[in-house]
Amino acid sequence: MSAGTDAKEGMRLVYHRFSPFHRFNHYLVMISFFGLVLTGLPLKFKTSYWSQVLMDAFGGVAAAGFAHRAFAVVNILYFILEGSYMAYFVIGRKGPIFDDDSIVPGLKDWQDMKGMFRWFFGKGPKPLLNRFTYWEKFDYWALFAGTVLIGGSGLMMWFPEATTRVLPGITLNLALVLHSNEAFLATGVIFIFVHFFSAHGRPESFPADEVIFSGYLPVEHYIHERPLEYENRLKAGTLDQVVRPAPSKAKRRMFGWVTGIVTVFAFLVASYTLLLIIWPLFF
């Protein structure tokens, strides 16, 4: 059942999954990630024809370097915002840290993963997934750790003179190896091997999942996708915290357009990046 048919039938209730704060942060992640990949990867794959095309489009290596730093500032901004939110959540005890609802990995994730593989091979039912699945937790923490590593090493290379006043020169060798590899890893994870598929390519959400842009999904979809969270909330009587009347038709249509445009754009960026990377293997 897609969002389109829901809209036609008239969506009654929606499940609110992401707050405006988290949606805003996701936009920042998207903008900075696309920008950093497009201005950074051409350096790693310097001999690729498409790297040269991209660099020339940016107005040269120096201009691309400036843009890379500008996108890095956006990156730092979302990192500060998300870090502050985390601190607020933990210190302010806004919710339990290790329960079913949490983004912190636990034993259930391991069991879910085994369950999913059994399901893939037709040897069992699809596991009852919770608010955050194990691949979503991987996405989240990989990005968080990656931001620290890439951001830290990137700042060292942004200010090499200041860095080597305190640390030995080999720090810059390490920073380059780390930055380059971690960025390649992140690009692969986001564009090809994990995120784009698990967010949009999964059979449950194909061809695009609106939830990170609108914040909500139809409640029927929610019950099917997060059965355990639904069950727990039903038992605890907290369903009314997350289930609300659907927004207006105009608003729903707007989110549909936003999702469509972003998805197409993301697909183009990912395709170009893939082309850039594999080109030197053949030419």
């Binding site: 893939f120 971690e182 890893l185 692969g188 090809i192 999964r202 059979p203």
Partner: peptide, 25 residues
């Protein structure tokens, strides 16, 4: 990183392909 990239891409790739296979089936 070499090992990590191979491991993550291989696992992510297999997971994705199997998921698509189940979805199509």
């Amino acid at each position: 990183y070499l090992l990590m990239i191979i491991a993550v891409f291989a696992f992510g790739g297999i997971h994705t392909l199997l998921y698509i296979y189940r979805g199509l089936k």
